[in-house]
Design a protein around this nucleic acid. Structure first.
Length: 261
DNA sequence: AATAAGTACAACCGCGGAGGG
DNA sequence: ACCCTCCGCGGTTGTACTTAT
């Protein structure tokens, strides 16, 4: 019966690409229904049998993809929440583009969804990253100046807060020196970038509650993250520490954690 | 209002690993 | 050991929709 319905509604007038028997392009609601019925009856898997058993003119790959990314009942709909975004960032720092691995930590989200989210929200900034290194350094320096001023003001206002730890942030040359010791095999340029990112991450983490006059903190944070993207492999993987029994990763940019950690 | 640029997301493709014959 | 099929993964493309100019 389902085959009859299918053949009635899947005429060539639909305008979709047909290639040697297999349909391509967007799925129709009827195709979805057939696939859902198939999974109800036979369970997930054996995707190449779908066409034979349902009359659906989709190949196994297409059926699996449609089910996994769109039809599965346990999928979470709606926008990625800020919390999920943080998780994605942290896990990407640890795993790189292993989207399926990242997706396992986000129930209801698919690898495809996370991959798309990453690309549209973050990846686009990479192309500008090399140009931004110098600009970011200037911003970093400016931010450090700003933070020091803020800290001085805070000191004056509230003597009970001990901010010595925050003020002990390493300078850029210090960070580079530490990286040279820790990762002597990296090139000078890599160490330069690594030290820079480390430094900027630290500064971002301390300035999170402060407002900065001329530019958005968020913009700066993302810009700096992009500078990191190309050398995660040299840095984050080596230095991200996690307990094997705890699947939640933590961003700890340096082996020698700064005082405020 | 028109259109170019940007964004979001569904879907396809190629590749490689696993497993069975 | 080899071949074949199936499956899953990551990269990429296509397109509808939104926003900016």
């Amino acid at each position: 019966m389902v085959c009859e319905i299918f053949s009635e509604q899947m005429g060539s007038s639909w305008g979709f690409i047909e290639e040697i028997g297999w349909r391509k392009g967007p799925w129709t609601s009827d195709e979805d229904r057939l696939l859902i019925e198939y999974v109800k009856l036979h369970g997930e898997g054996r995707w190449n049998s779908v066409a034979r058993l349902t009359g659906l003119r989709r190949n196994g790959k297409s059926c699996r993809l449609r089910w996994v990314n769109y039809l599965r009942p346990d999928l979470k709909r709606g926008q990625i929440t800020p919390h999920e975004e943080r998780i994605i960032l942290e896990l990407h720092a640890r795993w790189g583009n292993r989207w399926s691995t990242i997706a396992r930590s986000l129930p209801g989200r698919t690898d495809n969804e996370i991959k798309n989210y990453w690309r549209t929200h973050f990846k686009k900034k990479i192309k500008n990253s090399s140009d931004n290194v110098e600009k970011s350094r200037a911003r970093l320096w400016k931010r450090q100046q700003f933070q020091q001023q803020q800290q001085q003001i805070n000191n004056q206002i509230n003597n009970q807060i001990d901010i010595k730890k925050v003020m002990s942030l390493p300078t850029m040359p210090q960070a580079k020196q530490e990286m040279t010791i820790l990762y002597p095999n990296n090139t000078i340029d890599q160490q330069d970038q690594v030290g820079f990112f480390y430094s900027s991450m630290l500064n971002n983490s301390t300035s999170i509650s402060q407002s900065e006059p001329s530019s958005s903190n968020e913009d700066i944070m993302w810009d700096d993250l992009w500078n990191l993207d190309d050398f995660y492999g040299h840095f984050m993987i080596n230095t991200t520490t996690y307990n094997k029994t705890n699947t939640t990763p933590c961003l700890q940019p340096m082996a020698t954690t700064p005082a405020f950690y």
